[in-house]
Write a protein that binds this DNA or RNA. Structure first.
Lengths: 226, 226
DNA sequence: AACCGAGTTTGATCACGGTCAAAGCGCGCC
DNA sequence: GGCGCGCTTTGACCGTGATCAAACTCGGTT
């Protein structure tokens, strides 16, 4: 068996979760671990779309570029998330590490064959893709209809759920500029909204990346406001 | 076999395309045709998520509602598109007909069983969902980063590809207000942008719904502008 | 410990798109 | 054919968030 499947940090949450030992053994032969430094890319927009992967640790972003050259982050990837685009020759997005990260990488065509050979894998990937689609559409609502204040609050709620499920303090994996790319805002607007949340006692900012949610309820309300 | 599978208008483009005769026969026992009048809904947000369907004819929209009550259209559905959310108890979106439409409807749980029993169906649905995700993410870029003028031009290009692949004139399936819901704009802004495109000779508006693309190239350029 | 640079904050101003209001027009209806 | 409703257009004004510019701060490096 692939070195480490048995001690994989996301064994029961990643797309491999429903596989039995034999299926896992077959799949693990195709994959290998890969470490990424903050800023490194796995997939380049327009490039040959060569890999799929599971996120083992770290946070990554999936980006699209407008014809005019502006960046829009279309998804954030956290541990146990699946990354890649099976069944497409080239990728329409780029994937970059926002923090140091570790992946379990599969060559795309081999992974596609594994999908065909292993029905639980195919079904799990379908369910995940449907979830991703729901999330993507939910985020469209945010981009199209929410104010800057509600956008920033929504992102903080979202990240806190992933990174500090118990509530409380955590480190932001994104710079202000990266948050702006997610929210369809610019860097100054993000900064102003964060400053305002801090001034109002909803959050507490410590240094560049430290944040604590002092009043999650108020933050939730702001995330839902027009 | 289900009345009409053999003369189905989207037999070779819908999610059933890769099925052989036996598989198609099994699936067709579960489905039945349903006509919708413009404005009728199939799935209600938060409702019991009871059905999946293929679009046979017409145009539908998939909508999300902000907590504040504003509408955002997150997808448009054209003939041969798949509609519904397998594997979820309740739906997070509502689906409404923008024109009179005809569907091939399946009870959700039976369709899920069919997915499990029929691997080509599962694979085709996976491929489609991945395509939908790409489209959704592409649209996020539009919502987050494009100007009002570029948004309206993009929507026209998109609809023309679907409704008048040869180019030329067609009828808009959406009112100005519905276009606004798709683009994250308001109705007046949509109207002004259309008027401007017409004044500049890029399009020609005839009545409320008629439109002709006079200069597709210029329209494409405007769709790509910042 | 001081320096340096990237990232962040703050401020002033501007413009795009939203809001409010009213007139116009297409289209189905009687 | 004329009426009336609902969608659309146009106009005036306003506000949010973008842009431009400059000061500041954190954090890593020598």
């Amino acid at each position: 068996m692939h070195r480490g499947c048995e001690d994989c940090a996301v064994r029961d949450r990643a797309v491999c979760a429903p596989l039995d030992d034999a299926e896992l053994a077959a799949l693990s032969k195709l994959g290998r671990r890969r470490r990424l430094r903050r800023g490194e890319s796995v997939v380049f927009e327009g490039d040959d779309n060569a890999v799929c992967a599971n996120v083992l640790s770290g946070v990554l972003r999936v980006n699209a570029t407008t014809p005019a050259g502006r960046e829009q982050t279309v998804a954030l990837l956290y541990p146990a998330d699946f990354l890649g685009r099976p069944y497409a020759r080239s990728s329409t997005h780029s994937v970059t590490a926002l923090t140091d990260a570790e992946l379990c990488v599969f060559p795309r065509t081999l992974f596609e064959r594994a999908i065909g050979d292993c029905s639980p894998l195919e079904n799990q990937l379908l369910r995940r893709t449907l979830d991703d689609l729901d999330r993507s559409r939910h985020w469209m609502m945010l981009l199209g209809r929410k104010s800057a204040g509600a956008k920033v609050a929504s992102l903080l709620v979202d990240m806190a759920e992933r990174l500090a499920p118990g509530g409380g303090a955590f480190d932001l994996p994104l710079t202000r500029g990266e948050m702006a790319d997610v929210l369809g805002l610019n860097i100054e607007t993000v900064s102003r909204q964060l400053t305002r949340l801090a001034r109002d006692g909803v959050i507490l900012l410590r240094g560049r990346r430290g944040i604590a949610l002092l009043d999650s309820h108020a933050l939730g309300e702001r995330a839902e406001a027009a």
